[in-house]
Amino acid sequence: MPRRTAYGPGTPCWVDHVTVDLTGAKQFYGGLFGWEFTRENDRGYHLITLRGEIIGGLGPGPTGMAPGSSWNVYLASKDLDHTRTEVGRLGGRVVMGPVPAGEDGRLCLAVDPSGAAVGFWEGGRDEGVVLVDEPGALRACELHTARPGAAEEFYRGLYGDVPLVIRPSSRTGWVPFFGVSEIQDTGATEDAGNTGSEGKAGSAGTAAAAPAAGARPLGSNLFADPLGAIFGLTSGN
């Protein structure tokens, strides 16, 4: 069981799902991956666990948010105040924070120069997702954007040569990829420029279960869940 409690600066270290339909999200992902959900605070934020290990978060969307959902990807920061300053200097826009997350750490949300929402996390204890790189857990995160050059310049300015996966796409946003045990082609892509994880896709069971549960296949190993949040499936590390 791969466990991880430390992340270097710039490494994707946390993912969470924000939605106005917590019940629907729990039903979909609980059925798909076997995830369990533990309420963390009075605002309705939940920790997602698999076999007792933390793999991410689930929380309510802002008041007035239209029905829908999204996955957020957070990059590790050792000094969130410095990161916030650098985001602005490099052409990004901070939209929230830094704000405390109880005793667990602090977070900041921003929009990078390519238009993708991104989070930054300064951990106070475990620095991010604990269970990784196995079926049902986070395996990878990719940034899909129509402006890969702007994105690469921004993240290189923040973190140097940290290896982040940035792919050309007409669809802009960070995408978490969750592990499955086997690979199977999910079909033709809707976006020829969006190559996902180089031909890797869901296991026979999971790939079939996602559309059956209400997900919409987008091709290139990508799916939109019933509320519109985009996620990927991969069997690779």
Rank of each mutant, 00 (worst) to 15 (best):
D79S: 05
E103M: 14
H82F: 01
V130N: 02
L109K: 04
P113K: 10
G115I: 11
E86F: 02
E103C: 09
A76C: 15
G92S: 08
W121N: 00
E86M: 14
R106P: 05
K78H: 09
V99L: 01
R84V: 01
G123H: 08
A116R: 15
R84C: 04
L90T: 09
G68E: 14
G102V: 03
L109E: 05
C108R: 04
T83A: 07
G119L: 04
F120N: 08
G124I: 13
P113M: 05
L109V: 13
L107T: 07
G115M: 00
G91N: 08
G105I: 08
G115W: 00
S70P: 07
V87W: 03
G68I: 03
G97D: 02
A110Y: 05
R93Q: 11
P113Q: 08
S114N: 13
G91V: 06
G128W: 10
S69D: 02
W121M: 03
A116I: 15
V111H: 05
K78R: 15
C108Q: 08
R125G: 10
E122M: 07
G124Q: 00
G88C: 00
G102Y: 12
D79K: 13
S114A: 15
G124E: 00
G102D: 06
G119H: 04
P100S: 09
Y74S: 08
L107P: 05
G68D: 09
G102H: 11
W71R: 09
L109G: 10
G123L: 04
L109N: 01
G97K: 07
E122W: 04
D112A: 12
L80C: 09
S69Q: 11
G115F: 05
G115Y: 02
M96N: 13
H82E: 04
S69G: 01
V99A: 10
A110M: 15
A116L: 14
L80K: 12
E103L: 06
G88H: 05
S114E: 09
E127D: 11
V129D: 05
E127F: 14
V73P: 05
H82G: 02
G123F: 04
R93A: 13
C108I: 09
S69N: 15
E103T: 12
G115Q: 00
E103W: 03
D126C: 04
L109W: 05
L75A: 09
S77G: 12
L131P: 15
G128S: 03
R93F: 07
S70G: 12
G119E: 05
R125H: 04
S69H: 14
P100W: 03
F120E: 02
S77Y: 11
L75K: 12
V87S: 01
G92Y: 02
G92R: 01
R106Y: 11
V95Q: 08
D79V: 11
A101I: 15
S114D: 01
L107V: 14
D104F: 06
R84M: 12
G123N: 06
D79M: 00
